[in-house]
Structures are given as C-alpha cells and as structure tokens.
C-alpha cells in the first residue's frame, strides 16, 4: 500500500462542516431567548411554545402531511411500476420515450414543471370540467408526478441488483408472473419501497415552487407558509420549526438505516 494521503480526509471533513454548520446554528439559535441572531439572550423554549399555538402553521402542517402521505403513496405505485418496466421488460417500442419521461422530472427546473402543470389543469378544466378549481387534488397530482421519478430511481437500483433465482424457481414451479411479483419480488424489494416512499413523502412535504403554482386560494401548504414568512424577515419561530424537522428526520433516518442494516445482517 502507498502511504495514506492526509489531504483527502481533511477536505472531506471540511465538506461535512460546510454541510452541517448551518443546521447546527439553526438548532442552537432556536433556543435563543433573544430575537436577534447575533445576541445570545439565554436559553429559552418560548419559540417552540409560540409555534405550538400558531394556527397558521398548524393548519398548513396538517394539510402538508395529508398531501404528502397521499402523494407518496401514489408515487410509490406509479414509480414502482415504472421501475419494473425499465428493469424487466427489455426493449419495446416507446422504451426510449418512457425512460426519458421517467427520468426527466429529476432535473427539470421546478418553475417549468409548476407552470406547465398549472396551465394543464386550467386547460383540462376548460375542456373536461376536471379538475374543478385548484387545491388538494391538483397539489397531489403535481407531487405524484414530481416524486414518481425519485421512487423509480430507488426501486430500479434495487431491482437490478436483485438475485433473480428465487423468482425463476417460482416461475419454473408454475406460479403466474403476477403472483411471483406479489409473493417473492415485493418482499425482496420492500426496503427500497419503504425508502422510496419516505423519499417521496419528504419531497412532497418540502416542495415550495411547484406547490405555489398549482395550489389555489385557501390551500396553503407548510412550505408556502414558511416561505412567505421568511420573505417578511427572519423569525425565530422558523428556527424552532426547522429544528423540529431536523429532529424528526434524524430519528426516522437513523431508525430506518438501523432496521435495514439489521435486516441485511440477518439475511447474510
């Protein structure tokens, strides 16, 4: 072996510092009694208390949760089907178009997607009378479209790494493809399904730009509420909200990865 270079680990740690310092600052200052960022006014949880009584944020959070659960579930179904098509169907007419359509939302600027979806909803309403107005339904349709691509990426990589021998054995024993998929494939890719659902849930819960385009009056999601209050100026309540999100995400991710590594260890 050559000597271990020192430069790379140093750069890596600087990179982590860059990624985590702003989050640390946010959490620390959420407990700051002073309204000013630069002044430490002593430890206080008053911003959390204030947040817990802020009807606007609570209503928006409840709406966002419902949108995110519905969208993530829809995106999980469509994204998983798309991944199965891409990994298992081989070449077919339209594959190129299909694969481009599945992948494009990953990188498409959100302003373009938001505007395009809004104009589509308006055009559909003029022609078909559906969807009526804009709100929960249009938010969900837009978020499903946005999140499907991410679910497809996660499920696809798991499907293509998967050992096919169990599926083939079941097929040889005469099981129908649909049954094989339900009984063998789905349980084997379950971790990826859970990961994909969580990713879609998070993306939906976090989306501002597309939501701003496709939502209607009276339907304000949490990120839209947060965005408009940030634009009015820095508010310590947002620090508290951000810290709660960081805490929730850390718990979910750490639990998920613990479950995953435990599952893999048992299988080995």
């Amino acid at each position: 072996m050559t000597r271990r270079p020192l430069l790379l680990p140093v750069l890596l740690n600087l990179g982590y510092a860059f990624l985590y310092l702003p989050i640390a600052v946010l959490v620390v200052y959420s407990f700051n009694a002073s309204r000013l960022v630069t002044v430490w006014g002593g430890f206080s949880t008053k911003w959390y208390a204030q947040l817990a009584h802020d009807e606007r944020f609570l209503d928006a959070a409840w709406l966002s949760l419902r949108v995110a659960v519905t969208s993530a579930t829809g995106a999980l179904v469509i994204g998983t089907l798309a991944a199965v098509v891409l990994v298992r169907f081989g070449a077919f007419r339209g594959r190129g178009l299909f694969s481009a359509l599945v992948a494009a939302p990953l990188v498409m600027p959100e302003v373009i997607m938001g505007l395009a979806l809004l104009l589509t909803f308006v055009a559909l309403e003029q022609i078909l009378g559906w969807p009526h107005g804009r709100g929960f339904l249009t938010l969900v349709i837009a978020h499903v479209t946005l999140c499907t691509a991410f679910v497809a990426v996660v499920v696809r990589s798991r499907l293509s790494q998967m050992d096919r021998s169990l599926e083939e054995a079941a097929l040889d024993l005469g099981a129908r493809p649909a049954k094989v998929f339900a009984v063998i494939t789905l349980p084997l890719i379950a971790p990826a399904l859970a990961g994909g659902w969580l990713l879609a849930f998070t993306l939906s819960l976090d989306d501002v730009v597309v939501s701003q385009f496709v939502t209607g009056p009276g339907t304000t999601t949490l990120p839209i509420e947060v965005f408009s209050s940030i634009r009015l100026g820095v508010s310590p309540e947002i620090n508290a909200l951000g810290s709660l999100i960081v805490a929730a995400v850390s718990v979910v991710i750490l639990t998920a990865s613990w479950l995953l590594t435990r599952g893999e260890a048992e299988r080995d």
Partner: peptide, 28 residues
C-alpha cells in the same frame, strides 16, 4: 455517504433560511 445525503432529507427551505442568518450584514 449517508452523512452527505442526510441534510438533503431536511427541509431545503429551512437550510436556505439558515444561510440568511449566517450571511446577513449583522449575521453570524
């Protein structure tokens, strides 16, 4: 790798907001 991806799971909006507090003229 997980450490790289983890911040992505927390709210994008809130992370951008954290930078506002850091970069302001009278910021951190």
């Amino acid at each position: 790798l997980m450490l790289v991806v983890l911040p992505f799971w927390t709210s994008f909006l809130i992370r951008v907001y954290a930078w506002m507090g850091i970069l302001k003229d009278e910021g951190l």
